[in-house]
């Protein structure tokens, strides 16, 4: 079996597992919605004020949603022994890790990007900024999934990895927060957004090149320990 077929096999497997338990797909979205609701309640419902904070609120919630789901990335495969089998498969672990991340991104980042216009209107974000928001979310959430995967790979063997993974990964998420937020703010202000998206794209290229390597090392260590 060649590497591309195996890559597609893993993506299909992860998606099928998610479809069989739809609540797993809905969870990040529900979390997203509920946290968004917290902000008007906490900050006050004044539309102008919400509109100012909307880009920041969005990105923080995306960060948290990604963080929460990252922990589950390899957990069940580790528990039931599938991960051992993957390590022994002689398929490039780099591509296998990338495949798992691709599936994770489709199920969290892409879904969040697709529903984001609704939430953007709820937070009174300027409608003209919505395409930028979606584009930045698509790029940025892919970086977040890759970084989250590194944290997940390093902590999957530990009994209480959940809290630890936030300490490990949140600092690494910050550049995405800064530039993703910057893109939306620029778009609201009518400024060019291409530089922001380009930087997010550059981060994505770097993350695709390096994060799966770290994941592969992390998974070997976790299965070993």
């Amino acid at each position: 079996m060649n590497a591309t077929t195996f890559f597609m096999l893993i993506v299909r497997r992860q998606l099928l597992l998610a479809v069989r338990r739809p609540i797993e797909i809905a969870n990040p979205l529900l979390f997203f919605l509920m946290v968004i609701v917290l902000f008007p309640l906490g900050l006050g419902p004044a539309p102008a004020q919400l509109a100012t904070f909307a880009p920041g609120i969005f990105w923080i919630v995306v960060l948290l949603a990604n963080l929460l789901t990252a922990d589950t990335l390899f957990r069940s495969d580790f528990d039931d022994g599938s991960l051992e089998q993957l390590l022994l498969s002689r398929q490039p672990l780099y591509l296998s890790a990338l495949a798992a991340i691709t599936a994770h991104w489709l199920l969290t980042g892409v879904l969040l990007a697709l529903v984001s216009p609704v939430f953007a209107l709820m937070l009174n974000l300027a409608p003209s900024a919505i395409p930028t928001l979606m584009g930045a979310l698509l790029l940025g959430s892919a970086v977040l999934s890759l970084l989250g995967g590194v944290g997940a790979a390093l902590t999957v063997g530990l009994k209480r990895g959940g809290m630890l993974i936030s300490l490990l990964i949140l600092p690494l998420y910050l550049p995405v927060l800064i530039f993703g937020h910057g893109a939306v703010v620029a778009s609201v202000g009518g400024l060019p957004v291409a530089p922001y998206l380009a930087i997010l794209g550059a981060m994505l290229c770097l993350a695709i090149a390096l994060a799966p390597l770290a994941m592969a090392l992390g998974l070997r260590i976790s299965v070993d320990a």
Partner: peptide, 22 residues
Amino acid sequence: ALYEAYDNKEAAGKACAVLALV
């Protein structure tokens, strides 16, 4: 924190090495 979380100290060292490089 990552180092302390691992029981196997050799694995802990390797995991921290990966994290430090990242």
